[in-house]
Design a protein around this nucleic acid. Structure first.
Lengths: 168, 168
DNA sequence: CGAAGGGGGTTGAATGTTCAACACAGCGAT
DNA sequence: ATCGCTGTGTTGAACATTCAACCCCCTTCG
């Protein structure tokens, strides 16, 4: 692959190194987060973020579609995930009273307790893997670079994930 | 999650923004790469990297375990993937003549042709999503930050992926 | 030699995600 | 009223990955 394609110019060595490093990041980081959550809480990262987002919502309740946007997954993926979370007793689901087309997912008391239990370990992992291994300057640089890439790959996606920060 | 855990201190707003941006990156970038490859070549990113790594190997042949390390996947994952690639006629598999315990995977002529076809599009996507949206300085910063995170999350992993660069 | 052990690789079951089809509530037009 | 139409959400099948069990070949040691 290195020098076999001359029409579409290949990457310089530095670009290639960067590319590989970034790709490896996108594999290693989610894997590590999933591993920690699976080990300590028997759930995967997506399920945790569903609970976390719900825990921040008013009444700990959200419509499925809004939750899907915030947790960055398809509606189908969310529906399957909520089915599992419902079976664990952490979330309950019911048609919206105002608009029967919508479904509202609500965090149960057990789910709220679970989030509180699990969050510290997750934050600790976030620190251990990212925040603590970078200088504040590096962290900001990384944020800016990540934003640029995300905007190219999935425009608007990051904004829907960052909405929640406006009320913190 | 924002202010519910006081024992394990939560992240500052800037740290939180960075964290979300990075997480979004780890989701959006692989998704975009997979989408491009699926659309243009009917294969996923992992399968493409298997072919690409094979194409760089002497004799376009590698032992399964070495290939797994280079492509950053488990042996089982690789075995399943190679089964699919074999069905497509792009890879062939046979026990190693020297040591019957090993299996050697070899790129077929059709596989070689396929890689040459697909590589330009993949590189183009790498440029479009990453290389072209960052300044050279940002790219280097991103590489360094990614390396630090990967070293924390999966020590040694990045090195095995970068081996190939020594002969370019 | 022959048996035990270890490492490489494969396999099938379980789990999770995607994709396409479907069900259903509300809305708007006739 | 009723007939579509649209958008929300669910479901089951197909697919990919993980996990654990297993097979086989080589090595080593009795």
């Amino acid at each position: 692959m290195t020098d076999t394609t001359d029409d579409a110019p290949w990457l310089t060595p530095e670009q290639h190194r960067a590319w590989i490093s970034i790709l490896t990041l996108t594999q290693a980081l989610p894997a590590a987060l999933d591993a920690q959550l699976k080990r300590d809480a028997r759930m995967n990262c997506f399920e945790y973020y569903v609970l976390a987002r719900l825990s921040e919502a008013p009444g700990r309740t959200m419509r499925m579609s809004a939750l899907a946007a915030l947790a960055q997954g398809s509606l189908s993926r969310l529906s399957h995930a909520v089915t599992r979370l419902e079976k664990s007793g952490w979330v309950s689901r019911r048609p919206s009273p105002e608009d029967g087309r919508h479904t509202e997912a609500q965090l149960t008391p057990a789910g709220w307790k679970k989030v509180q239990q699990v969050a510290p370990g997750h934050v600790r992992e976030a620190r251990r893997l990212v925040v603590d291994v970078l200088t504040p300057t590096q962290l900001t640089q990384l944020r800016r670079a990540a934003r640029a890439v995300v905007d190219a790959a999935a425009p608007g996606w990051l904004d829907s994930a960052l909405v929640v920060l406006s009320n913190s």
